[in-house]
Computed example of a mutant assay.
Amino acid sequence: MTISFFLVDAFTNRPFEGNPAGVCILPEAAPARWMQSVAREVGASETAFVVAPQGKQARLRWFTPTDEVDLCGHATLAAAHALRMHEADTNAPERVSVIFETASGLLTAQYTDAGIRLDFPADAPSPADPPAGLIDACTIPVPVWSGRSARDWLLHVPTPQDVEAAAPDMDALSQFDTRGVILTAESPSESDHDFVSRFFAPQVGVPEDPVTGSAHCALGPYWRDRLGRSDLTGYQASSRGGTVRIHLPEPPASSEARVHLFGACCTMVQGTWQAPPNATSPDAEARQSPSL
């Protein structure tokens, strides 16, 4: 079985920035144990596995080095980018979109002049008091607002400097019952982005994620309500940094709210995975964890 492999920097148009993701293009489904071994070997926060599409749809799964997750934004962006490159190499007709069948339902990636557009379910946070010890574990001042999405705690702190200065205690954070913690603040008016954020998820083996698409499914609705705009730009202020452009469409009646995330990608490595799906380490059993 020949397996094309890509290492892609997502949510950036410059090498060595954004969020790196591995992508394997599979001719057929592979065992979860093998995929978990590959993700651990690659060592990126996520590795995506795409079963080569038949027509418009393709199956997609995501693995951190320790767990399978049910949603990952940057690895979906990387998967869409890598799939188009793979199909160009095989002289397939250039596609304008792909629908990924995932554990979070059908996710559409559309290729546009403004970059790849991902259509994800919104994950709007609701107000909630943070549990005892969470603010101290994040090393932040008292938040302006705190709340919980389906996946994460979201803490709005007073200034972007508070976001950048945070140095969370990862051991302490890993004890809280949450996928992760989002820190965010409004950007100054002269900035080219509307808000900044950082994201910490030690419970799923990712102490700090460089750029987190799924976190922007909560950040988009939150900042739309605060700023009164449906088109926003977020900057994730990790050491690598990355930009996520957001559009929040009005949902049709009786439909779930969606978030459109736009981003660019850089291909860093392209090659062929050598270890076949029957080459699996004995301790590589995949665990199911929340999305990233």
Rank of each mutant, 00 (worst) to 15 (best):
E17F: 11
A286C: 14
S187Y: 09
A82Q: 01
G105S: 05
L134D: 04
H74P: 10
D70Y: 04
D209S: 10
L60H: 01
S197G: 09
A237S: 15
S255H: 13
A21K: 03
L83K: 07
V42L: 13
S191Q: 11
F16W: 14
V50G: 02
Y235H: 15
P27K: 05
L134C: 05
M35S: 01
H247L: 09
F120C: 03
D192A: 14
T243F: 10
A82T: 00
A21N: 04
T272M: 03
H247Y: 08
C138W: 02
G133Y: 06
A167K: 10
S126A: 14
D119F: 06
P251Y: 12
G147A: 08
T159W: 05
P221A: 07
D162E: 09
R148T: 02
I99C: 12
T267G: 09
H81Y: 13
V259G: 06
A80L: 04
S104W: 06
S214E: 05
S146Y: 05
N91V: 00
T12G: 11
S281A: 12
V196C: 15
F100A: 08
D9F: 08
D129G: 08
S37R: 13
D192G: 07
D136M: 09
R40Q: 14
F5G: 02
L71M: 15
R245N: 15
R148P: 06
V211R: 06
A167Y: 01
L26Y: 07
